[in-house]
Amino acid sequence: MRKVKNILWVAIALALMSSCSGGKFKGSSTNSVSQATNGMASATSVTNASNINSITSTSAEPGGQGFTPCTPDPQGDSLGTERLVQEHGNWCWAACVQMVLKTLGDTIEQCDVVVRKYSPSMSDCCRLPTRPHCDVAGWPNFPDFQFDADTTTNQALSWDTVKHQIGCLRSPFCASWKGINSHGQPNGDDHMSVVCGYKIRGAEQLVKILDPYTSQGAALRWRPYEFYVGDNTRIHWDDYYNIRRLSNR
């Protein structure tokens, strides 16, 4: 009887530990990265391990699609995403892919993003990245790096989805905007940045945005959610989210 009791206690303890690992990993950036990688690498097993969480899960979570059911921290969460600067004028998208994959445990070069997207015409862009034809804009193609992602169309992620990306999937995501002039017309100032945190303070919902476009390390800002959606200088374009490692890797 005592033996059965002990086994039961161990089982309960293990179940509790599993449920925690499906959720948050706070601490240093290094910890966040490695833990996030583990979380992403075995989405199925984490799902199985966190049945306890499913009781409180938001099953209608827009980012759901077979991902770990979990409840993100209602107060906020933040990933230790490294601030990386885009290496060329048009490479915001490449810098964003680099920052996201680095958070998920993979180190790549920005030129790799360009080369893989546009090869063979850009195949020399890692060897000679300053050649003018290499400074090209584009949209992320995560399968080039054995990852996949979902995209929105001219739309920001909902607040719940933002929380799910950061708090449950432990993954930053790429957000993009179309620049507009003061009359609301497109002005060509299009841009992509990385969202890597969320927070609630009082009634205010905030997101943490890393803008790769500066010479001193990506500019880090907290912005109210409504200004991530859009502001008087830009409207929302497409976001790349639910970024996950392809299982055949």
């Binding site: 476009y213 500019a219 800002r221 200004f227």
Partner: peptide, 12 residues
Amino acid sequence: VSGYGSTSELIA
């Protein structure tokens, strides 16, 4: 408030 922390231009 629409942003806490500097834009890249203010950093410049």
